[in-house]
Design a protein around this nucleic acid. Structure first.
Lengths: 336, 336
DNA sequence: CTGAAAGCGCTAACAG
DNA sequence: CTGTTAGCGCTTTCAG
């Protein structure tokens, strides 16, 4: 940088200004610097800038998995949203593993970032609130967190209610739910479960334990497995509600293996509106849970927190928020 | 760090050694440092370490898209492979946009990384070879590059040949190919095209231009569109080979919309063996193109280059390699 | 609009 | 096995 400054006949500070988009600079000064930069093929050392400025211009996104359509699409949306703020994103995959998630929390991964968007799976809320996180953090995802950190989620209960209601309105009365869990911890699963149960109750439909399948892994294999268990139970059913699209798609596959046609023999409903859902055969009816909204909101919130932190605000200056969208929408395709 | 050193009664260097896993240290020294670290809740400043050491411990993965199953799975594999080397990965999404890809090349994204794994889409080989990249780089993906950089790819030609051959062996003679391109640039598309044509030629089957559909976008929508064009042409066909799984899956969807059953009315073949392929209905027969192998190999190669560069080796010391696997395998499921 | 000086917090020799 | 001494290449005051 000193070389560039010398070549352009200005001081280092001026070159620094140039790179940081400082507005008040004589055009000829700017031009001389520009020339010097290309002649010397100068590239700023970002590490030095990071050290000096105390910022890195990157945030971390820590999620359980990337090869899962939902997370892939979420990550894509986060990267796009971050780009709008000139932020890079480091992707960390936790595998939903407790140890790994703890490492994320106490920053022992040897990365330096300005902020963290974290979707924990294995960690308890207490783990998270007792962690000594040193960067601004916003939580997303399955587990419901009302603690020290901002939490962005979708209205799972209302979405699942709408989905179930849709099935009921179509005349189905024996609606199997794939993704149930005994675990009472406040998760997306639990909320979707509540939405399902509420819709049933409102319609005066009984809850048949044989139709509530779970726990199961929330991927296609899990959905396929769920259908197998459902069939094994011998219970009659005329519709299946998979608590996410992967489950529903896996269910669709397995139903067909057993000669059951969708939607003729059994109606099928998913949740999330992942890209796959649009192109399955038949097209999966599902609920758009507002994945992009989550990504955008999480990034915007994080940026807010980051600038507050940079401005030297105390951590408790602005209390943590807990936002969730109600902007889900039912996406009608062929299966229900 | 000075504080920790003082509290532990050692010098900064010793603390530094502690953090960098220096082996020769008296247990009690180590213990004292450890204690001081927790008491002070000390966290090393990674930016400072980066500046000082000239390394950042992160690599960048630049791909056209993340919400696409193939790339999502590739990214996942890269992250896993990088973890083995204690490397973090920054994901940059280019949208296959030329400007964006150029930004990646000349590092003007304001990120500092030790290496780059780059899957360009829009850039010509000449763009890439004339770029002034300053970090070790390995190229992956669609375009075939034989230039200044290492290039990792799969044996598209052989894979497509095997796929087509499989269809022919099953008795199909009018095999439509979805993903053709007039563009003669050496791409994965072109290679798969060659494999297809060679298999046809070897079997003495004619090439009907009405059956070679393209160019089209390599996603599900493109596949659906391809089928529409195929149908519109009025040409008879008994099998469809989608040049990737997304195309094939989109084709499957569209075929069904038109009342054509797979595989009864028409056989279907994909390429890549993306997770979706296993769970579609019916399960998609496809070719595993060795995606994980690409990720692992690219990372390993990059690490090699990085340490060579760190060791002060000249850029041309070890000439660029061009590796591709022949380890594809045909994955038989239900569609062909 | 520009310049000078003082660090940011760590690692890298090299000597002990 | 440990300590000393220099920087790494920027940004940041604070003047001008």
């Amino acid at each position: 940088m000193a070389d560039v400054a010398a070549r352009a006949g200005v001081s280092k500070k001026t070159v620094s200004n140039y790179f940081n988009g400082y507005r008040y600079m004589r055009p000829d000064t700017r031009a001389r610097i520009e020339a010097a930069v290309v002649e010397l093929n100068y590239k700023m050392n970002i590490s030095a800038r990071n050290l000096s400025s105390g910022r890195t211009g990157t945030i971390s996104l820590a999620i359980p998995e990337l090869a899962h359509p939902y997370f892939a699409e979420l990550a894509q949306a986060v990267v796009s949203a971050a780009q709008l703020h000139d932020l890079n994103v480091l992707v960390e995959v936790t595998d939903g593993d407790r140890e790994h998630e703890l490492e994320i929390l106490n920053g022992s991964r040897g990365r330096s970032v300005d902020g963290l968007i974290f979707g924990p799976l294995a960690l308890e809320p207490s783990d998270i609130d007792s962690a000594r996180i040193d960067v601004p953090t916003v939580l997303i995802g399955d587990r419901v967190h009302r603690g020290r950190f901002d939490f962005v989620s979708v209205d799972n209960e209302a979405g699942a209610h709408a989905a179930t209601r849709h099935l009921i309105d179509a005349g189905h009365t024996r609606i199997a739910a794939l993704g149930f869990d005994e675990d009472l911890s406040p998760t997306a699963a639990a909320q979707r479960q509540h939405g399902y149960l509420r819709a049933l109750a409102e319609a005066g439909l009984p809850v048949d334990p044989a139709l509530t399948i779970g726990p199961l892994v929330w991927n296609r294999a899990g959905g396929a497995d769920g259908v197998r268990r459902l069939l094994a139970s011998g219970a009659a059913f005329d519709a299946v509600f998979g608590f996410n699209d992967a489950i529903a798609l896996g269910a669709m596959s397995e139903l067909s293996h057993h000669g059951l046609r969708v939607p003729d023999d059994v109606a099928l409903m998913g949740f999330d509106d992942v890209q796959d859902a649009a192109y399955s055969v038949p097209g999966l009816t599902t609920v758009d849970s507002g994945r992009d909204w989550v990504a955008r909101t999480a990034v915007d919130l994080l940026v807010l927190r980051m600038s507050a932190a940079a401005g030297g605000a105390a951590a408790d200056e602005a209390p943590p928020v807990d936002v969730h969208t109600a902007a889900f929408s039912l996406v009608r395709r062929s299966t229900a």
